[in-house]
Design a binder for these strands. Structure first.
Lengths: 313, 313
DNA sequence: ACATTGAATGAATAATTGCTCAAAACATTG
DNA sequence: CAATGTTTTGAGCAATTATTCATTCAATGT
């Protein structure tokens, strides 16, 4: 009723009445003067629009244990394990929320920090879980370029998504993800703005990075940043994973040459002076994750129970 | 203890699978190796134990919370808070629409009601938001006179505006707002038509009233119903606000004497037997609104977020 | 050992929620 | 203004979730 009002407003109202006030959808329908079905639609729209944030406030003992073990085994500063259904290879569910919680924890700090962020599906999902946070005193820097091969904005670059929900000062990288040549990369990196952004990235206090795999469905390849031949070449030199574009082998050694000569991303921030959290799960990424934590490419990890077990086995 | 903690662990896990991973309770039961109803019990235990935190990320959510708090704090039957834009002192925007919605809700009822209405800019704006409503079974009564000091129709008397858009039986008060003397008021009120209108007002089911302030820009003064000296006199006795002309102090006590001896309006309808909704916002009206709700001059309130916060502070 | 109590369980059932589909309302275009 | 495509709506139905109730099980006191 009430004329037009914003549709999302009503959705939020309905969601509030449903989740917070514990009303049944029929009661909501009555209060809002719509049919029960419409009330149901409003609630699920609020859901779909990501207005509803649920968090479980309990350290599940088993996950805690795994986290402690992993921290000891791989000398991690930070580790969060999310419960998994026994079979779960299902995308980003779970760790995205956990990552969002951790990002939120950092962005709600009083003292100003520099947070750097990578790319990827998981990270994107995590940022979409974030509530609005007012934190103009913080700085968010993207480690990766935001221009996709076809010149469009890179879809999985998350800095803009983050900026739309958080009031921190944000610095995207006005670069392609992978330059066409080593010399082009040098030229791009010599630009004044890029240099200052790269410099800022080096002052990171905390970083959130996806860990990508380099199999047939490697995101770098699937999203068109590298060709199939380039992928094969990487695999041939033993590359098993990639962080902000930098391919590394099973020992966590950054591959020399090949596409790594042209990766336009900033270097992974120092693990000696800052917290670098990798976020990934799933059996297909296992080798990549293991290499990354074993070699100390990251000193923090958010993953799920199944992956944690595999990393400890 | 141990049993209890373990149980909560499972509850947390079940809640996690349910709310975050979106599993159905049957799936959870399978994964946790318990029966479906046990899974249900775990989830609801997690709920009861407060493990599950839901948050709605939308300004509306805050408004609903404020409304609930205000209802509890001031023992209100009804409260609606509209989000305030950045310029929170800007006239009637927002609450007018909200008031219109509530008026409409009452006028679209099947069973016949008596609705009484006051005056003022906010109420005028509210009525102008109303759609056409066919409701000949309802009765609308003005609580205030509709004759301005210069003999013309009082501009902010809303009964005529309302009548132009709604088919209810409407009863204006063929009176000045403030009589020239106490005896004139008595004489006027003794008229047969006025008496029946006043009697009708006493049978109100719901009332919509503006809350006016009594500072330098008090509507009563600005619109010429009282002189500047009368305004000063009221202020001197501690008057902070006014409803349908009746001035009251910071404790919500109706001022004795002064202009109140000549206010020709009907009394504010009973808050014990009917819903009396005050509609006002803005920092300049804060004291008046606080006094009105605290003393129970009204038992319903429509205001904005900023004012609601101030009332709770 | 045995009765008593109280929590936990699963079956049955009631209530609520989610989905599909056809009709209606709406907007757009020729 | 008719024709068209799109969105919104509510009814009916299927799926899911909550509650009730009789029963079991284990623990405790007599």
């Amino acid at each position: 009723m009430a004329g037009n009002g914003n549709r999302l407003d009503d959705a939020a109202r309905a969601a509030w009445l449903y989740y917070i006030a514990g009303n049944t959808q029929e009661e909501i329908a009555a209060k809002l003067g719509v049919s029960r079905q419409s009330a149901q639609r409003l609630v699920s729209q609020a859901m779909a629009a990501g207005l509803v944030k649920v968090r479980i406030d309990h350290p599940i003992a088993e996950c805690l244990r795994l986290a402690t073990d992993l921290k000891a085994r791989y000398d991690l500063q930070f580790c969060d394990i999310v419960p998994s259904g026994l079979d779960s290879d299902s995308t980003t569910i779970g760790i995205a929320e956990a990552a969002a919680t951790e990002i939120e924890r950092w962005l709600t700090r009083e003292d100003p920090i520099v947070l750097t962020i990578g790319t990827g599906r998981t990270l994107k999902a995590a940022v979409e879980c974030l509530p609005r946070i007012d934190c103009p005193h913080h700085t968010v820097v993207s480690l990766t370029g935001n221009i996709s091969p076809d010149g469009a904005a890179a879809y999985y670059n998350v800095v803009f998504t983050l900026a739309s929900v958080v009031t921190a000062k944000t610095f995207p990288m006005p670069l392609p993800v992978i330059a066409s040549s080593a010399s082009e990369r040098k030229m791009l990196h010599d630009q004044k703005i890029v240099r200052s952004t790269l410099a800022m990235a080096e002052r990171a206090d905390v970083s959130f990075l996806g860990i990508g795999e380099l199999g047939e469905s490697a995101p770098l390849y699937v999203d068109g940043y590298i060709t199939h031949d380039e992928l094969l070449a990487l695999q041939k030199t033993g590359a098993v994973g990639e962080i902000v574009g930098w391919a590394f082998d099973a020992d966590g050694e950054i591959i020399q040459g090949l596409t790594n000569e042209r990766v336009a991303s900033a270097a992974i921030p120092s693990r000696d002076t800052s917290l670098v959290i990798g976020i990934a799960k799933g059996s297909v990424k296992r080798a990549a994750i293991r290499a990354a934590v074993a070699a100390g490419l990251v000193n923090g990890l958010i993953t799920d129970e199944a992956t944690a077990r595999a990393l400890l086995a």
